[in-house]
Computed example of a mutant assay.
Amino acid sequence: MAEKQFKLEIISPDRSFYNGAATMIEYRTTEGEVGVYAGHIPMTQIIAPGVLTITEGDGTKKQAALMSGFVEILPEKISILAETIEWPDEIDKQRAQKAKDRAEQRLKSGDNSLDMVRAELALKRALVRLSFK
């Protein structure tokens, strides 16, 4: 028996990132990891930096680095408004490594004048990008 599909639309400020059918998506929210199938109750969620996994109807899985935004879930459609989202081949690994190093230095410095929350978020984003080999 084929799994029920839903329409998935992902848009960012600079492009329509994905528009197609999926059987499941998995991503990270501010409340933790989430997996959503068709027919889910309506809700909205806030995205936290993490890996987005899209499972298409044929079982193909696609992954992307999803940094922040909002998700609107309806029984037959899921919309993701992403502030930043990248396919693995779009990630600049050297830039991500430099961002990770900078964020770690800021966090280790103990300098209270630095915005530690901002440094922690920069570190999380860099680690998500570097998680793709």
Rank of each mutant, 00 (worst) to 15 (best):
S16R: 14
I91N: 04
V51Y: 03
K7M: 08
Y37G: 00
E26T: 14
G50A: 11
V117D: 15
R106P: 00
I80G: 03
A126D: 06
D115Y: 10
E76R: 06
Q97R: 14
G50S: 10
L107F: 06
A48C: 09
S109Y: 06
Q105F: 04
L121I: 12
R95D: 08
R15C: 07
L52P: 04
A48Y: 08
A64G: 04
G32N: 09
G20F: 10
I85W: 00
K108F: 02
A21F: 11
L107N: 06
G69A: 05
D14C: 04
S131M: 12
E76N: 13
K62W: 02
D111P: 05
I47F: 05
M67I: 13
I46W: 06
S68M: 10
K98V: 08
E90M: 07
R118Y: 07
E120R: 15
T55H: 03
N112V: 13
L123D: 05
K133E: 12
A82M: 08
A122T: 09
P42Q: 05
V51R: 12
E9I: 14
P49D: 05
S16E: 15
M67G: 00
E90R: 04
E26F: 00
T23C: 11
F70D: 00
R125K: 15
S131W: 12
I11C: 06
S109W: 04
L130H: 08
M43D: 00
H40K: 05
Y18N: 03
L114Q: 09
P75S: 06
A64K: 01
K100F: 01
A99S: 13
A65S: 13
M1N: 11
D14Y: 08
E26I: 10
S113E: 12
T84K: 14
A48L: 09
M1F: 08
S131K: 12
H40N: 07
S12C: 12
Q45A: 15
V117N: 15
A99V: 01
